[in-house]
Amino acid sequence: MLRVDSLEVRYGRLVAVHGISLEVGDGECVGLIGPNGAGKTTTLSAIAGVLSPASGTIEIGGESVGGEPPEAIVRRGVSLVPEGRRIFTTLTVEENLRIGSSTRKDGEVDADIDRMMERFPVLRRYAATHAGKLSGGEQQQLAIARALMSRPRLLLLDEPSLGLAPLMVDLVFELVAQLREEGITMLLVEQNGRRTVDLADRTYVLAGGRIAMVATGVKDLEEVERAYFGGDAAVGTEA
């Protein structure tokens, strides 16, 4: 589904991502973890087309897409739930869902909106409300629902649990688990290392713009913690 090879991304002269390679197969849920500034969001931004790679290739469904703008990437079936949610606060909740279907021309948009509201009852309750009025957890649900409205083949999630109350964090991880059950291919960026490793088929550990290792179980993670983050540091703990 997604293949990233030797990706390098720069901000001016600053190299944020140093030639990383990763892969997400069809139906897989792949994690990408690491401390602040490791290049997680930069990597996702490059995949989503917000940033152009300085070098390396990004392939989606076997086709090279490096340098394409975001509106083209999303048409290839890749949908991003960005860091900080970035829902459209001046639009209503329903409009936020509708705008998530901007790439679609089929007649099932209304039915899909209904399905989303079924799935996230809070969205139905506030359908006509400006989305800016929702709480953080509600906004996160809206952001994920908005991304799903494009019927993506690959869902990119950028720190969906960031800044949420513990109960909401549980809810978000539960949701990701559900989506995984439904067979949606996902690349999940998180700071919450343990839960991500638990959930994902594979988890890439990013540090300093490079992939430090690939973890498949919590044991691997502990090794990483010792090696890169000095023992019991941030990776495994909850905020």
Binding site: A48, G49, V50, P69, P70, E71, V74, R75, S79, L80, P82, R86, F88, I99, G100, S102, T103, R146, A147, S150
Partner: peptide, 9 residues
Amino acid sequence: TMARLVGIR
């Protein structure tokens, strides 16, 4: 940017 990310040209 977010508008472009949901596919608005």
